[in-house]
Simulated scan of single mutants.
Amino acid sequence: MTIGQDAADRLTRKGRETRRRIVEGAAQEIRERGAAGATLDDIRARTATSKSQIFHYFPGGKEELLLAVAAREADRVLEDQEPHLSDLRTWAAWQDWRDAVLRRYEQQGINCPLGVLLTELGRTTPAAQQLTGQLISTWQAALREGIRAMQKTGQIDHRLDADRTAAALVAAVQGGVTILTATGSTTHLEAALDTTLALLRASAPDVR
């Protein structure tokens, strides 16, 4: 993810470390109190930074800081799927990816920090839409590359549209996550993962 990264890259190493500490501290505060309940004073106290430091790194105030935290949470969505997401070249790797996704959301439960942050920012605002778009695009691209790698070795039918299939996988996972946040149950997420992977396997039934 690259939201806010350009500004961070222009900082000194110490500046980057301070900015990262503020973002991580704000993320923890939001997990505990929610976006609305986490005040700048709370974040300042947790991160041992002054108000002037917070506004130095986030001149737009809380909204800009929330966007930086949302970008970090989006990164975590993908990081928690590694190293499997970047190396989907065998069915064992796909199974490990499936297990990593399920484990991540089992641990998260009904509380989705990224969803809370995007709601607070306004899901239809350009910044929130860009962030969501980048997350989905990066996720879909990794799955697409995995499908293409499997197609090259004959483990997935080469006639499948890799990009549309990857899009369907992301949609299936996100649908299961939406139900999880509403019900607290991972049943639908697990079913979505298992069914989509079974369909991929069935596209080349002669390959073991």
Rank of each mutant, 00 (worst) to 15 (best):
L117I: 03
T183K: 11
R16F: 00
D194R: 11
V177D: 01
L88R: 05
T47Y: 03
A128E: 13
A45K: 15
G60F: 15
A202F: 02
L199K: 12
L102Q: 09
S185H: 15
Q129K: 11
F58P: 00
R201H: 04
L193H: 03
I43Q: 01
K152P: 00
T195V: 12
V23L: 05
R72H: 04
L85E: 06
G25S: 09
T186E: 09
A191M: 13
I156H: 02
A45T: 14
A142K: 15
A141H: 06
L66C: 06
G25W: 15
T49H: 02
R123T: 11
T195A: 12
A171K: 08
R20A: 09
T165Q: 10
Q151W: 14
T124V: 08
R10P: 00
G109N: 15
V101E: 06
T2Q: 12
R201W: 09
V69C: 01
A68W: 14
A202L: 07
T18F: 09
R76Q: 04
G60H: 15
R89Q: 09
Q155Y: 11
T178K: 13
A172H: 10
I179C: 02
L88D: 00
D96Q: 15
R103F: 03
R31K: 15
P113Q: 07
P113Y: 06
L114T: 02
M150F: 01
I30R: 01
L65W: 13
E106D: 07
S203P: 04
T47R: 07
E120H: 04
D6G: 02
P205T: 14
V116P: 00
G4V: 13
D42M: 15
K152G: 03
D6H: 13
A127F: 05
R13H: 12
R72Q: 06
G176S: 06
R33E: 02
Q5S: 04
A8P: 03
T181D: 12
L117R: 04
A171H: 07
S86R: 14
L118M: 13
E79P: 00
P205N: 14
A171V: 08
P126T: 05
A38Y: 08
R46E: 08
I136C: 02
R33V: 01
R159V: 09
E63Q: 09
A172V: 05
S203D: 13
R89C: 01
A202Q: 08
T12M: 04
L66W: 15
A172Y: 13
A172R: 11
D157P: 03
G37C: 09
Y57M: 06
L118E: 09
L143P: 00
L160C: 02
